[in-house]
Simulated assay, not measured.
Amino acid sequence: MSVSAFTPQIHTPLTMKPKIKHRQKQKPKSFSLSTTPITQASFSDPFVLQLAETLEDSLSPSVSLQKLRDSSSESLLSTSWPSRKDEPFRFTDTSFIRHSQIIPITKPPQLDYLPSINGNTLLPNIVIADGFVLNSMSKVSTLPDGVYVGGLLSDSSDRIAKRVLEFVGDFEWGDLFWSVNGLGTPVMTVVYVPAGVKVDNPIHFKYVSVEGGEEGSKKLPVSNPRVFVVVEEGGEVGIIEEFMSKEGNDDKRYWANPVLEVVIGKGAKVRHSYVQSQSLNSAHIKWTAVRQGPQMKQQFSLYGGHHHCSKDKIHHSFLVICS
């Protein structure tokens, strides 16, 4: 049975936050929840803390993602696992995830595991397998000059990286799954469209779930792909997100927990389509967050969805125009 939700939701930030001892910026290390003082335990859900620690232990250091990981760690200290008593999850039972053995996926799959995924589409496309970008299977050479699609560079002097890092980790709403993604994502994929540039063909993101537990087992591999889109004033781009299983994984157990963040400048247009076709035994939680307008820090639009998969494809699309 499929349960889905795409009603706009705005989550108010918690007013009570545990005090976190900030580290010096020149030593970018992952925040360790295991060293949190016991006095903070009253704010926390033990299961969420255990999940956060497991995710944290699976990560490689990343200077560019440190702010996002720190803010996500802090958020998880005061966030409990949702139940149907929580309004956004009133029609969604997340116990399937809660009672599984969640295993972070720590490395990209071998390419020979993906014979059915190829780049023969006419559209610019990016293949993301288990949260990792597969550059050799992606095709972005047809994009206009100035448009960048690729990983977030760690070089803070890079112009695009500097622009993107103005926003990363600065969204002040989200739920537990938003923060789980922020802490657990191994890489961030960036789409950058300069001012006035129009991308005629939509960029097609293919998210492929490769690792999976056997039906009837408790194992639930989790992937946390994250994509950040910045469209400057007057720019235009289309984004297609397609979620699928590796061929032969139609009955595997896994958890896909993706996040798409979009920042849209004045007069810019973003068209977004979303197609899901995954295992009947999988869990899929999806955040799409849009920050728009000339005063970006004051104008927000948010769409959130969470559901288990069904036999039929789920399709969702929207258009945002900022003027």
Results as ranks from 00 to 15, higher is better:
residue 166 E to G: 00
residue 167 F to S: 10
residue 169 G to C: 14
residue 170 D to W: 11
residue 171 F to D: 06
residue 172 E to K: 15
residue 172 E to A: 13
residue 172 E to R: 15
residue 172 E to T: 15
residue 173 W to C: 05
residue 174 G to Y: 01
residue 174 G to A: 09
residue 175 D to S: 08
residue 176 L to G: 02
residue 176 L to N: 02
residue 176 L to Y: 04
residue 177 F to Q: 05
residue 178 W to H: 13
residue 179 S to F: 00
residue 179 S to N: 08
residue 180 V to E: 05
residue 180 V to K: 00
residue 182 G to F: 09
residue 182 G to A: 13
residue 185 T to E: 04
residue 185 T to G: 00
residue 187 V to E: 09
residue 188 M to S: 04
residue 191 V to M: 09
residue 191 V to G: 01
residue 192 Y to L: 11
residue 195 A to R: 12
residue 196 G to Q: 10
residue 197 V to W: 04
residue 198 K to C: 14
residue 198 K to G: 09
residue 198 K to Q: 14
residue 201 N to S: 13
residue 201 N to F: 09
residue 203 I to T: 06
residue 203 I to E: 05
residue 204 H to R: 07
residue 205 F to W: 05
residue 205 F to S: 02
residue 207 Y to C: 03
residue 208 V to P: 02
residue 208 V to Y: 01
residue 210 V to C: 06
residue 213 G to I: 03
residue 213 G to V: 06
residue 213 G to Y: 07
residue 215 E to L: 11
residue 215 E to S: 13
residue 218 K to S: 15
residue 218 K to E: 15
residue 218 K to Y: 15
residue 219 K to S: 12
residue 221 P to V: 00
residue 221 P to R: 08
residue 223 S to N: 07
residue 223 S to F: 04
residue 223 S to D: 04
residue 224 N to P: 01
residue 226 R to A: 00
residue 226 R to C: 01
residue 228 F to H: 06
residue 229 V to A: 08
residue 230 V to H: 04
residue 230 V to E: 05
residue 231 V to S: 04
residue 232 E to L: 11
residue 235 G to Y: 02
residue 235 G to L: 02
residue 235 G to W: 03
residue 237 V to N: 03
residue 238 G to A: 12
residue 238 G to F: 09
residue 240 I to Y: 06
residue 241 E to L: 09
residue 241 E to Q: 14
residue 242 E to H: 12
residue 242 E to S: 13
residue 244 M to L: 12
residue 245 S to K: 01
residue 245 S to W: 03
residue 246 K to A: 12
residue 247 E to P: 04
residue 247 E to C: 08
residue 247 E to T: 10
residue 250 D to P: 07
residue 252 K to L: 12
residue 252 K to W: 10
residue 253 R to Q: 07
residue 253 R to L: 07
residue 255 W to I: 04
residue 259 V to N: 01
residue 260 L to P: 01
residue 263 V to W: 06
residue 263 V to K: 05
residue 263 V to P: 00
residue 264 I to Q: 06
residue 265 G to D: 07
residue 265 G to Y: 06
residue 267 G to E: 07
residue 269 K to Y: 11
residue 269 K to F: 11
residue 270 V to H: 02
residue 276 Q to P: 09
residue 277 S to H: 12
residue 278 Q to Y: 02
residue 279 S to H: 11
residue 281 N to D: 08
residue 283 A to Q: 12
residue 283 A to G: 14
residue 286 K to F: 10
residue 289 A to T: 08
residue 290 V to T: 09
residue 290 V to N: 05
residue 292 Q to T: 11
residue 293 G to Q: 08
residue 293 G to A: 11
residue 294 P to R: 15
residue 294 P to I: 09
residue 295 Q to L: 15
residue 295 Q to I: 14
residue 295 Q to M: 15
residue 296 M to T: 10
residue 297 K to V: 10
residue 297 K to Y: 14
residue 297 K to S: 14
residue 297 K to C: 11
residue 298 Q to E: 08
residue 298 Q to G: 00
residue 298 Q to F: 05
residue 298 Q to M: 02
residue 300 F to P: 00
residue 302 L to Q: 14
residue 302 L to A: 15
residue 303 Y to Q: 13
residue 304 G to M: 06
residue 306 H to N: 07
residue 308 H to E: 11
residue 308 H to C: 06
